[in-house]
Nucleic acid binder design. Structure first.
Lengths: 154, 154
DNA sequence: CGCCGAAAGTGGCATATGCCACTAAGTTGG
DNA sequence: CCAACTTAGTGGCATATGCCACTTTCGGCG
């Protein structure tokens, strides 16, 4: 096996992932800056766009993010008039989300900026490689990881 | 499963990366929870540990994070007595960082928890695959991405 | 030596994210 | 029908990160 057993932190999958996320996030943020959107906001707007007036829980699940975190992240977008929420007709607990016309326009604007960054990235790493990487990341994200914590089976 | 993904533009490399980071981050956070450290804090402590009383700028560079962000992230760790800072002897602008004995102990404690999560992860995706993924992520993080920004003279 | 621009941090402000406790609203079993 | 449980969000609190505007030091340079 030729390698050490001692924990080399440089081998931490999570730390490596976060580091890459900071780096790439910065790049996409810069690209989107002219639109005034952060890459996270752009992603959120897009997710709403491709869904059909999704419930908050649905969005949170798709993005694998905490429901309350989504609620917080949504606030600036609501404040700026890009999205609006409305109660589900059948279940009053459910709050659905949709883009406003202004949000749609902003998304369209951001998409142009995004595609430049996206192309730039794929030019660097290769479209094929990028696709593989995304597939790997999706696989990781969808892993059903559980801590072998003994006392947690209830 | 239950993917709310539609083909096409939802192939944003950045969004995919963040999504995976949220997912994996939670897993490692859960694993480290008994120590009271977040995975980010653990990573930071470790980085300090493997460096030799690094300057803040050095740490920020290694982790590809904003210097001011590092400063903020460091605060809870200082407050809790895990790390301490001290001025560089030759350059009074430079602030160096080191673990306190207590920080070292906490890191040791966290390392045990971390290794469980790490092993769990690698068991799921395979050590080989994990290594490849980390390599790919490091490559992405170290890419010299530049926006083909149109105008401007520096 | 004294002014100037670069380098390293700090603080403030804003968004990103999570967890927890709590409320409101469906669901279900008796 | 009502109590108990479950589901969907909210609000508060804390950390994670970034950018920008300073402030303090350093390193030149005339």
């Amino acid at each position: 096996m030729t390698e050490a057993h001692k924990p080399g932190f440089s081998d931490c999958n999570n730390a490596t992932l976060r580091r890459a996320a900071r780096s790439l996030g910065r790049f996409y943020d810069d690209a989107l800056a002219p639109s005034g959107l952060k890459s996270t906001q752009f992603g959120l707007l897009f997710q709403i766009h491709i869904s059909d007036e999704p419930a908050m829980g649905t969005i949170a699940e798709a993005l694998i993010m905490d429901l309350s975190a989504l609620g917080h992240t949504l606030k600036p977008l609501i404040r700026d008039g890009y999205v609006q929420t409305f109660p589900d007709k059948d279940d009053r607990r459910v709050k659905r989300v949709r883009l406003t016309p202004r949000g749609q326009a902003k998304l369209d604007e951001a998409l142009k900026l995004w595609s430049v960054a996206q192309r730039q990235f794929e030019k660097k790493v290769g479209a094929e490689q990028a696709a593989k990487l995304r597939a790997a990341l999706d696989a990781v994200a969808d892993l059903d990881l559980e801590m072998p914590t003994v006392a947690h089976s209830l």
